[in-house]
Design a protein around this nucleic acid. Structure first.
Length: 376
RNA sequence: GCGAUUGUAGUUCAGUGGCAGAACGCGCGACUGUGGCUCGCGUAAUGGGAGUUCGAUUCUCCCCAAUCGCC
């Protein structure tokens, strides 16, 4: 059968699960982590390198690509997969998160979001329909409905308004997206995920989840985290939303990317993650290791001849010393950023692989607890 | 040897007769659906001596050093 999502394995003690996400570009085994490739590339890494380290998917940004004619160029290049010579699956984000970016966001009303194009200075009105068209031009495998993202510090009333607007837009996205693809065979269609908002308020999240389920998306994204809330607030909401969502739909926890949060998410049955965390932190000198976070720019590693992580088998750890990576990073050489980024993304990808193995062996909960100890 | 100019943080430069600033560097921290790669905190200095003055890093003189020019 050509179902989008199939669960192949379940953990007994937690809600963790292993599944297959089927897209027009191929199948990815969940859970997986997507490095961010905002403009069609993960900073510092080639598509071949991502493929070699078994990254199954990346996520680009429809709005930001659109700002520099990227969506047009990509359309004329035959879609993002071909454009970036990527062997895995491509997600696109809608651009709703850029409401967080004061430099390009102007305002939003019920019809859509007004951005300023920082390149031309022109105002740019993005409606849910327009957003769907951009993502279809880019031709990613999985698109996101346009959301209106509330800020952590907003009042409950403001968050409720944004949440309701997100549901309303999701409906319009779904209708337009379906209509745009009605003549395309099902297996060649772009998949659309609906984004659930609601801040840290369980009641708002539950209401939004209920409405979104009615719209029957192929997958659900939980958005609006990593904005200042505590980890408890975050996972209380994820748990509540997950309990309501249908079991057979893939769930994507947007923007979440610290090792601990990924494991906690997996334990609650989240299937997809993404974050700029591993790539951005790497460039700024924070590396993930089996022993915890490593601040490689610290003076104590100046002459350190050991690898970044002695338990890691990535090519960086097999070939280079801390002293080398540190020196290149400090001197702002691209090789430093590249090696650091490679290691961090490899680490997260490998972490999830190990988590999956633990799920299969039935000791995921212990695996998670042991890991958490090191990241305290 | 003579003349001119300049000596302020590790570096490049502000500034002031009354608590000496910045940038970069260095040290530490942050970073969660990345427009332009950052942000926060910390560190550290008036070349030496004498004089004027209540008080001098600032004004005067001497010494030392550097740079430029002329021999």
């Amino acid at each position: 059968m050509s179902k989008t999502f199939t669960i192949t394995r379940r953990d007994k003690k937690t809600k963790a699960r292993i599944g297959k996400l089927k897209t027009k570009s191929g199948i990815a085994e969940t859970p997986f982590f997507m490095p961010v490739a905002t403009r069609g590339a993960t900073k510092g890494l080639t598509s071949e390198e991502l493929h070699k380290m078994k990254v199954q998917a990346v996520i680009s940004n429809a709005l930001i690509l659109y700002l520099r004619n990227g969506s047009e160029i990509i359309k004329k290049s035959g879609g993002i997969k071909k454009f970036m010579a990527h062997k895995g699956i491509n997600f696109t984000d809608c651009g709703g998160f850029q409401m967080y970016s004061k430099q390009i966001y102007i305002k939003s009303d019920n019809k859509g979001v007004l951005f300023r194009n920082p390149i031309s200075g022109e105002k740019l009105f993005i409606t849910p329909e327009k957003d769907m068209e951009i993502q279809l031009d880019i031709n990613s495998d999985v698109a996101m409905s346009l959301d209106s993202m509330p800020m952590y510090e907003h009042s409950k009333k403001e968050i409720e308004e944004a949440t309701d607007k997100t549901v309303m837009w999701a409906k319009r996205c779904k209708e337009h997206h379906d209509k745009m693809q009605e003549n395309i065979p099902r297996e060649k269609r772009q998949i659309l995920f609906g984004i659930i908002q609601g801040g840290i308020f369980e009641d708002l999240r539950k209401k939004a989840t209920e409405e979104m389920i009615k719209l029957d998306f192929e997958g659900y994204s939980i958005g609006g985290f990593g904005l200042g809330e505590t980890i408890e607030e975050e996972f209380n909401v994820v748990r509540a939303v997950k309990e309501m969502l249908p079991e057979n739909k893939p769930v994507y926890l947007m923007g979440i990317g610290t090792p601990i949060e990924i494991l906690k998410g997996i334990a609650l049955g989240v299937d997809v993650f993404d974050s700029r965390m591993p790539s951005q932190s790497a460039r700024r000198g924070t590396l993930f290791t089996s022993e915890g976070k490593l601040k490689i720019l610290n003076e104590k590693y100046k002459f350190d001849q050991s690898p970044v992580d002695k338990n890691c088998d990535c090519f960086v750890c097999k070939n280079y010393t801390k002293a080398f990576v540190r020196y290149q990073l400090i001197n702002d050489e691209v090789i430093g950023k590249k090696l650091a980024t490679y290691h961090n993304i490899y680490f997260l990808t490998k972490l999830i692989e190990r988590a999956k193995r633990a799920i299969k062996k039935g000791n995921f909960e212990k695996f998670m607890k042991d890991f958490e100890e090191k990241y305290r």
